[in-house]
Every structure is written in C-alpha cells, then in structure tokens.
C-alpha cells in the first residue's frame, strides 16, 4: 500500500523526471511545421531508447492544435475515457498551433510522468492558459498540505476552472483522472519491457493491483472528483496533471507530487513550467513566505 519513497529513491525519481523533461524540451525545440503527432511521439521514443529507458508508464503522446483541448473525437468520454483518438495521429503541426508532449519513461524501476506545452511562434491563448496553470499548482499543493480529502481538492480545481472560464479537460482522460499513483517497480535489469496499447504493462499492473487492494483500504490510486477519492491524501508519489481547455486551445502540466504522512511537496521545482513562470515574473509572489503561509492556511 501507500509507501513514501526514501530520499535516495526520490533522487532516482527526480533524475527520471528531469530526463523526461529534457526529452520534451529537446524534441519541442526541433519541431517544425509539417511534422505529425506520430513523428513527434516517435522522436521522443527514440530519445528515450538512446538514453537507456527500459520501460514506461505509457509510451509518448503528442497532441497538436485543437486536440490539445481534447476537442472532437478525442473528447469522447464513453467507454470510461479509453479512446483510440487519444493516441498520436496524423495531425500536422503548423505555426501558431499549440502542442502538448506527454511522456512517462521508467528507468530501472523508477517512473516519471510529465506534460509539456508549447507552440511554434506565438499563441496568446496558450500563454494565458500556461500562466494560469500556476494557480492550480499552488491550489493542489495547499489542499494536500491542509490534508483535505482528495475529491474535495479535485472539486476545488473544478471550481477554479469555472472561475477562470476554462474547462477541466483532464476529465476526458480515462476515469477523469486529475492525478494517478506512481510506484517503485522492481529492477529486473532487463533492457526492455512489454507495453500493451502504448501502456507499460508493469506500471499498469501496479495501478490495477493498487486499485484492487486500495478498495478495502478506503482509498483510490486514481484521484478525481468522484466519491472514491473522498479520502485524505495518501502518502506516496502522485503524477498530477491538471489540463485546462479554452475553445480550441489546451494546456497542462504534469509532474510528481510527493505526499508524506503529514506534508507534501513537488518533487522538483526546477521544471520548465516553473522556470517559465519565473521568467515572466509570476513566480516571485509565490516565493515569498507570506504567500506560502497564506496558501497553506
């Protein structure tokens, strides 16, 4: 059940998460107009193959244009959100078109799951969404620190979306997932592991096992607004992925949140979206102690 990784283990998770971001940033920097989602996803996979990634939570995803907002077929939520349109397709990137790269590599049993947004050129709407994501990062952390039930935090996220005028598009993910658990896998020294339908079998198995066991223990490895998330924050690692949509543009961040028995913190504050907020002068306010105290209160 819930297990807080040791500092050494957390270091390994942090390393993988940085590798995942490095992959997204490298591939994003080389995206050019005309490239398809499949090509972008393949480039990410090639990057991981070269870096010795041996497994994944899921193989890399890429969404371009209005697919970043989960518009059209990709937004169909029947079948529990399992939807083939989710997978990278033949959409070609154009200038000014937003994109999301989402990848979840595992190295020697340690897994990261990250989301990265960008655009070739400029997109004012995307900029605004990415700016506004900051408030979600703070809200979620403050909620967990205050030991609020996870479902309630998820509903707070919904309310913030409503206030800001956005749609919570993570509700189009399987099980309307705002966040999901990430566990330490056993290191079997194999260079490759099976994936089925682009999901890593071992990580998926872990999630299913957790889902089965957690039922009696009164918690859920899937964190959403539903009644099964009506429990205090479970210690361990959560890959948190708020995904906002406004009209034809979507933006998300995804990164690991460390929940301990009585506290919580983001695994790493040196991530691209935080660096971006710093650059734009948005982060400064969040850095001051009073603001943190205010959020935590």
């Amino acid at each position: 059940m819930s297990h807080v990784p040791s500092p050494a283990e957390l270091d390994r998770f942090r390393e993988v998460q940085r590798l995942a971001y490095r992959c997204a940033e490298t591939v994003a920097a080389e995206l050019e107009p005309g490239v398809t989602e499949r090509e972008a996803a393949a480039r990410m996979q090639a990057f991981f193959d070269a870096e010795g990634v041996d497994d994944c939570f899921h193989r890399p995803f890429a969404w371009f244009g209005d697919r970043t907002a989960f518009r059209g077929l990709i937004g169909v939520r029947q079948l529990g959100g399992f939807n083939p349109a989710f997978y990278p397709g033949l959409r070609r990137l154009q200038r000014g078109m937003p994109f999301i790269l989402d990848c979840a590599p595992s190295v020697r049993g340690y897994t990261a799951d990250i989301g990265y947004c960008g655009v070739i050129g400029e997109n004012a709407l995307l900029d605004r969404l990415m700016d506004d994501l900051l408030e979600y990062r703070e809200l979620i952390l403050a909620g967990v620190r205050a030991r609020k039930p996870l479902a309630q935090i998820s509903r707070d996220v919904d309310r913030l979306c409503a206030r800001q005028g956005y749609e919570p598009r993570h509700k189009a993910y399987p099980f309307e997932t705002l966040a999901h658990r990430v566990e330490v896998l056993e290191d079997d020294h194999k260079a490759e592991h099976l994936s089925v339908a682009r999901f890593g079998l071992r990580n998926l198995g872990e999630l299913i096992r957790a889902a089965r066991n957690s039922r009696e223990q009164g918690w859920s490895p899937i964190w959403n607004s539903g009644s099964r998330s009506e429990h205090a924050p479970t210690p361990g690692l959560w890959a948190v992925e708020p995904h906002l949509g406004f009209r034809h543009v979507g933006a998300k961040f995804e990164e690991l949140l460390v929940v301990t028995d009585d506290d919580a913190y983001w695994l790493d504050d040196d991530v691209p979206h935080v660096r971006r907020w710093r650059q734009r002068g948005l982060w400064a306010a969040a850095d001051t102690p009073s603001a943190i105290a205010g959020v935590a209160a």
């Binding site: 004012a124 709407l125 605004r128 206030r163 800001q164 005028g165 406004f246 009209r247």
Partner: peptide, 13 residues
Amino acid sequence: EAAERSAELARLL
C-alpha cells in the same frame, strides 16, 4: 472581478 475576467477571455478571442 468576474466581469473583468470574462472581458479578458473575450479579448483573447
């Protein structure tokens, strides 16, 4: 504040 937010979203369009 809410009205201003709506206006801001409209400007983004």
